[in-house]
Design a protein around this nucleic acid. Structure first.
Lengths: 299, 299
DNA sequence: TCCATTCTCTGACTCTAGTCAGATAATCTG
DNA sequence: CAGATTATCTGACTAGAGTCAGAGAATGGA
């Protein structure tokens, strides 16, 4: 990370906070305080639990409560206990609330328009492309990787989604019980580990590492949610597993995969894996890969 | 401006305000309120007039005064009347103020670093490049063009800078009195007009249009400050003059230029001007251009 | 010289945004 | 069923950010 990079980022944050920040206030913070507007937005068309709102916006419970009272007074929302659990309260937009949210929506469009308006067609296209790139990479930078127990709800969520996807994509279908790793529970220390990738707290990907005694470690159950693809999450998962395997003193990494998973196969190649002869009799595998582990790539 | 462009911009502002905005608060708003920090930053190493600070930050005079008192109490700045005009007060950083500003500076670097940290080398390079592009184009979008009297201080500033530059770049030097337009005062209605481009209120470029009765309008005195080049300001000035000439019912636009101004010549070509035979005897001109005016390009 | 103007400051406000310490009600656990 | 836990609410605060109406000093112009 060199000084000119830092300098560019600083210029960027300065320009953006000045230009976008100021306009943001100007367009969105007009007749409604920003806190209420954010809440109104986050409630969404279909309603939300108060608890979730608090989590999503990272706000104090008392504060949210007060904001909701204010929105309620203005007739924009209704707050009611959830029938199944009357401690939890659910917020819904009223007709007026929906209308207010729609104007916020329109303001957002106006803001976007005002940023583009002074530019000519070529500049606009470039700005939009650059913004999409910044958006994508900043989003990628907020993805966190954590080792969790394979039984953790987030891990289970990813595994279920993974199995469903395999079921759809393999020509033979997929039944985890017939695979060589029927039980993901094996992917916990000391026999392995399991990583979950999260974006804004939501699980969006996973990868497991099997650490058999006396045999090379194997990558298993790697998956990234469709909406999170293109962020480099899979590559980060690979790098993290490689680093962890190295920490365990291992010097080679293995994996097997199905011919239907073309994107994954391309990733393994580009990440430095070499195709090798079958080293197990996984019924769903068509390709086997191996990579010698060095120190984790210094950055 | 289509819907997917708007959508990309909206995603961008959302991601950026969430990620950059939050970190900004976290890193910069620590021991000092944001208002004071901004002020401290804007004072700069060499001191500033209070009036200028107010203008730059767009703050109420009472508010700035209060912020300065607070910084003064903390021993970070000294405020003194300016000897020439004792109404105006000038703020200077003390040693402690300079130190505080340096820590803000370091925090800014840390913020930038934290944005880049989770990414790998390739992603970093891409993010930085995209940020530089966004920065450049958002800056370009904040440039304003206004018709002013050629005698306006901002116009005079640009003309002086323009003449100085020509003096340096023409092999023969340049003396405005020997040119065909000795007096820029002719570039005011009804015989012409004069545009000034400004960025954050500072003049960064200009262009004049001569509207002689019975002859095609001519572009004169077009200049963009070196630090503002690459923002498409010259192109915008051309487009604006073209539109104004069209409003005056004119259907052709002319200009002459010196062979030393290669970038300008390239711009004229790419903007649709055709080189023509000399239509005047401007002593400093080597090339003469003409363009038929249509309706201003619709965007 | 006097009056208008410019620049800054002070006092008295307002509104957001948010924190913190309980109180209360519903639900879960043993 | 008692006690712990969870989800929400209320009251009492604080700090930041800014507005507005003058007051007062210095300066410029007729």
């Amino acid at each position: 990370m060199d000084a000119t990079q830092i300098d560019h980022v600083r210029r960027f944050t300065r320009t953006v906070t000045e230009r976008v920040g100021v306009l943001h206030e100007h367009y969105l913070g007009r007749e409604r305080p920003v806190g209420e507007a954010r809440l109104l937005w986050e409630i969404g068309e279909r309603g939300q639990d108060v608890r979730r709102l608090r989590e999503r916006l990272g706000l104090d419970s008392g504060y949210v409560s007060r904001l909701l009272r204010s929105l309620e007074r203005d007739g924009l929302v209704t707050v009611e206990p959830r029938p199944q659990d009357r401690r939890v309260r659910t917020v819904k937009l009223t007709e007026a609330g929906r209308a207010e949210r729609a104007t916020l929506d329109r303001r957002s469009d106006e803001l976007a328009g005002s940023l583009l308006a002074p530019l000519n067609t070529v500049q606009r296209a470039r700005l939009v492309a650059a913004m999409a790139e910044v958006d994508r990479l900043l989003t990628a930078a907020t993805v966190t990787l954590d080792a969790v127990d394979p039984g953790h709800p987030d891990a289970q969520h990813c595994l279920r989604a993974y199995f469903t996807e395999l079921q759809e994509r393999f020509e033979t279908g997929f039944d985890p019980a017939r695979s060589l790793l029927p039980n993901a529970g094996d992917l916990r220390p000391p026999h392995g580990l399991f990583l979950v990738a999260r974006l804004h707290g939501e699980p969006i990907g996973c990868a497991g590492l099997k650490l058999p005694a006396g045999a090379p470690p194997e990558i298993k159950r790697m998956w990234v949610a469709p909406h999170a693809r293109g962020l480099g999450v899979a590559r980060r998962l690979l790098a993290e597993l490689e680093a962890r395997a190295a920490e365990h003193g291992r010097d080679v990494l293995r994996l097997d995969t199905n011919k239907a998973l073309t994107a994954a196969i391309a990733l393994y190649h580009s990440y430095g894996f070499q195709e090798v002869a079958a080293f197990n009799d996984e019924p769903y595998a068509h390709h086997w890969f191996e990579k010698r582990i060095t120190r984790p790539p210094s950055e």
